[in-house]
Design a protein around this nucleic acid. Sequence first.
RNA 1: GCUCGAGUGGUGGAAUCGGUAGACACGUUGGACUUAAAAUCCAAUGGACAUUAGUCCGUGCGGGUUCAAGUCCCGCCUCGAGUACCA
Length: 943
Amino acid sequence: MEYNFREIESKWQRYWADNKTFKAENNSLKPKYYVLDMFPYPSGAGLHVGHPLGYIASDIYARYKRHKGFNVLHPMGYDSFGLPAEQYAIQTGQHPALTTNTNINKYREQLDKIGFSFDWDREVRTSSADYYKWTQWIFGLLFNAWYDKKQDKSMPLASLISYFETHGNHSLEAVTDTEVALFSASDWKAASAKGQEDILQQYRLTYLAETQVNWCPALGTVLANDEIINGVSERGGHLVVRKKMLQWSMRISAFAERLLKDLDLLDWPQPLKDSQTNWIGKSKGAMVTFKTQASDWCLEILDIAVFTTRPDTIFGVSFMTLAPEHEYVSRITSPGQKKAVAAYVTATSLRSERDRMADVKTISGVFSGAYALHPFTGAPVPIWIGDYVLAGYGTGAVMAVPCGDQRDYDFAKHFNLPIPNIFKGIDITQEAYAQKDGVVIDHSGFLTGLPYKEALTKAIKELEVKGSGFGKVNYRIRDAVFSRQRYWGEPFPIYYKQGVPTLIDLAYLPVALPEVAKYMPTETGAPPLGNATHWAWCCQTNQVVSNDLIDEKTVFPLELNTMPGWAGSSFYFNRYMDSSNTKAMVSEAAVDYWQEVDLYIGGSEHATGHLLYARFWQKFLYDLGFVPKGEFAKKLINQGMITGTSAFVYRLEGTNTFVSKGLINRRKVQALHADVSMVNAADELDIIAFKAWRVEYANAQFELEDKGVYTVGREVEKMSKSKYNVVSPDAICDEYGADSLRLYEMFLGPLEQSKPWNTAGITGTYGFIKKLWKLYFNPSGTIFNTEEPTADQLKTLHKTIKKVTEDIESFSFNTAVSTFMICVNELTSQGCKSKDILEPLAILVSPYAPHVAEELWAGLGHKSSISLASFPIFNSVYLVESEKEYPVSFNGKMRFKITLPMDFSKDAIEAAVMAHEKTQQHLEGRIPKKVIVVPGKIINIVE
RNA sequence: GCUCGAGUGGUGGAAUCGGUAGACACGUUGGACUUAAAAUCCAAUGGACAUUAGUCCGUGCGGGUUCAAGUCCCGCCUCGAGUACCA
């Protein structure tokens, strides 16, 4: 029998599907284990070999856990709302649902080819109405919830309303976006529906607000902070500008402290935790209020609040700076400065985010003409406007302490403002002194002579006494903008009753995405849903009806925005537990059984997006009692990227002549991508294929190397269609089989690391499978026997079991593959045919190469699938080695060999001591008192 | 700038607790089988000198601790990732 992977793989894939081998039940006597992959966005390009890396790792782990006797949940689905399908729809008029469907089918086909053990009965698609019904439901829960700071948890809105009815908002501790004016119970009762809603909006966990947003004109939509990279959109790299718009926001800031603190509970990669920590950006300091000096043009005294981490330097303040967007700018500006200020504000608002970031070195600003009063000295402090102060952080205003902050220092130098020195004995003639250690405050009234720590505490205390400020913890994280001006996303379950946003009840969900004639914004600039003719809500029938029926009595307009991409991915892990439930997102029984994800595998690019939002929603659902855990994934692994190895040909400038890499010799050439499929492992170009590739290359001339070949240049780049370096898993499966692909992807290197793909290397794992096969089969059939295995064979097997188990538990899948290779080589040279060895070996390799393992298992005479049974094989580990030689070296010169038994015995210690005595005497005559020995290794010597 | 991570043969990478550095694989070279090729199998493969037997040098650089350092400590250099006027 020959190893025919095509036959074997299609046979077992069919078998697994027909028998629902990997279907997980929501209850079992076995312990549960939940292995999850980050579900993909089904793009039109299909999968390349980089995509399945994480899926292969999680599949190995899932299969391994099944063998260890766990009831394993291992689902897959699609994050199928998104921009590419919509942009394709704009270009071609094809409905995004159709494109998405086609892409999903393609993905499914590709995934099936690799032989994953997913429970497909639980598949979810974020764009299907059955699914987004629950996305809308969670939005509704957030809409009807507020954050109680006293209990530090989210609460249903009903409790807030009843509080308002009895106390107004007096002594209420809730998280709100801005400070809410005080009102009494009777004020509340007297307020109109609109008035009450305006108040509630300030408390709801999702709320409508006029916010500065990142507007991307090219995409025609707003973007969240994490969707912008270096000032341009993550998708497409388009320009992003700041703009004020009425938008839905999510009050994630209420959860900042818990999101930060609970990172400690998670077994997640440290870099990922670090970037979440940075993103949340906690800093301790104080809020300080500066009162403005009354003036002819502004009689009113305004309170300008600033946040500072250094209240100890308050006596070093020589000016204040407001962000150009600060609300007081126009009010405090003096008539004389009006023109200059207006010009400056306009100029900064016109600059894109990118421009502003690009030249952080250019100092710009303008004096407002107004002054504030120093809270302690009462001295007038000039108020400046400067774009180095960001509207989005803190209060959008700073107290400038030029001697202690480099930006304030530069600004002061540039505009010739005074730089008072309040640090004892520190030279600030060249730059600011920003360190906190070793400073003693000087020229600072009651703070003079105090070191940093004491000055800080004292300053905050005095501010509180004076009523000019208080200690405060500030967070960088902003509330997340939740509206997108797009078609292909979840509609909001919201309609507007005389302008009051009103929630549609769960009983009438889902509110399905309407049909539109075109997928672009309307002529009036409204989002694409503005094109829908049936997009109004009838409160009597609780249905979507024609816009013509809008009468503002029973029929009202629906929200035109849709939800962002991260909405659907923020709870899907819970939905998998019970994905066909039509009554609830997940039944109580199912979520009690599965609890949380035990192992989550996916890319690190989601650190400050998906992974933060998902934690936020999980905490919210936990507060309301819908899920039993406040964190959704116990352990997380970031798989690295598999990069492509691009090939380059070099065209002499202005000609159609291509020069082989070795012959360039400083001549002017243009490097052009050549498709990697036309290049062999020795970097030689298939010239005939290259000429046929493109019309313009049909008559190309070539300068060849001595051997008559054209050598290409190589470079490692991201795998992408435009770089012609994409390798498809289908092609690999066709040529070498899925098992070779799986083993090779694991073998390439550590899971977390990024590594370049090199198709040539796959012959290694392919050869391994063929060698493995030959242990069980020869051309005429099976070759196993029932003879007793030899000691050597047992040793090889158990060594392998031990090592592979350790490797898999520590997610070192790459070394596990090497261990298999060594094992097979040893068994081959031992001439092993014993069933007692071959049986466990088949089980051992089955997580990695499941198809061939099934075939070997069947070949050994077993009727059932290897995947269906549970075997304790991974639990049995025997050490067969009894003794081994260990070297003792000294300064790289002397080498003695001692033989230690594997057990921890007196003899072992003595032998080691003697060896070391010899070494010592030989050199310096020093004799160690003690040698600490563990089985097999000498660790340490104490003198 | 800040935070984190990584530097080991021609290449991807092993070395899990400080204990024979370079496992395993690719590639390369030589050989066997073959009319030939593919496939398969065998051997060699860090560098230098010696080619019998060995010797010396080798884990980014410079120091240190230790009987012993790729591994620990101090100082640098380079690369990668994240973040960036965060007050």
